[in-house]
Computed example of a mutant assay.
Amino acid sequence: MSEFIVCYDISDPKRLGRLHRFLKKCAVPLQYSVFLFSGDDRQLDRLLEKATGYIDPKADDLRAYPLPTRGFKARLGKPALPEGIQWSGLPTAW
């Protein structure tokens, strides 16, 4: 299983909201327009294929970047989850 950063820049508020709600069902929000997706390449392709229905390719930007399996991963600043809460997986929709 691989991890990917999925991020977007959407120009229309309605499309932005729809894409955000869609991605929350299958990936973990790290910031408002940045998500962590865990899955294989086939699952990522399927996610991106479905996500293209929520964007306007001429005005919006949707990207996915693979994270290295081994390597430095760090967070600075406010944590996404409250202290003492451990994240152990993604939503079960995928």
Rank of each mutant, 00 (worst) to 15 (best):
A51M: 04
G39P: 00
L30G: 03
I10S: 02
F35D: 00
Q43I: 08
E49L: 13
K50R: 15
L90P: 00
W87F: 12
L30Y: 03
Q31M: 04
C26V: 04
I85Q: 06
A93D: 12
R70L: 09
M1H: 12
K14V: 06
F35A: 06
Y54A: 03
V6A: 01
L23T: 03
G89H: 04
K78S: 07
P79V: 02
K73F: 12
K25D: 12
G17D: 10
A27L: 02
K78A: 14
W94N: 11
R46D: 15
I55V: 15
G77A: 04
D60E: 08
P91I: 04
E49Q: 15
L67Q: 11
P13S: 00
D61W: 06
E83D: 13
R75Q: 05
R75F: 03
P82H: 11
K50Y: 09
E83L: 07
L47K: 11
D60N: 05
K78G: 07
R21C: 04
K73Y: 10
H20T: 09
H20G: 00
S2L: 05
Q31A: 05
Q31W: 06
D41W: 14
R46Y: 15
I5Y: 01
V6P: 04
R75I: 02
V6Q: 03
I85T: 07
L62M: 09
E49N: 11
L67C: 08
P91Y: 07
L76K: 15
P13A: 00
L47M: 14
R75M: 10
A93V: 06
Y8G: 02
R18L: 13
F72M: 08
T69P: 14
Q86F: 09
E49Y: 12
T52S: 15
L44Q: 11
F35Y: 15
P29W: 09
R21D: 15
S11T: 14
Y65P: 02
P29I: 09
L30C: 05
S11I: 00
A27N: 01
F72Y: 10
Y65G: 05
W87V: 02
L62I: 09
K58Y: 13
L81A: 14
A74W: 10
D40H: 10
D56H: 14
L67Y: 08
K25W: 01
G71D: 13
L76Q: 14
L30V: 06
A51K: 05
D41Q: 15
F4A: 02
D45C: 01
R18I: 03
A80I: 08
V28I: 03
E3N: 00
L36N: 03
P29R: 12
G77T: 06
P68A: 02
R18A: 03
L62V: 07
I10M: 05
L16H: 11
F72A: 10
L30W: 08
K73W: 13
A64S: 14
A59V: 00
L30N: 03
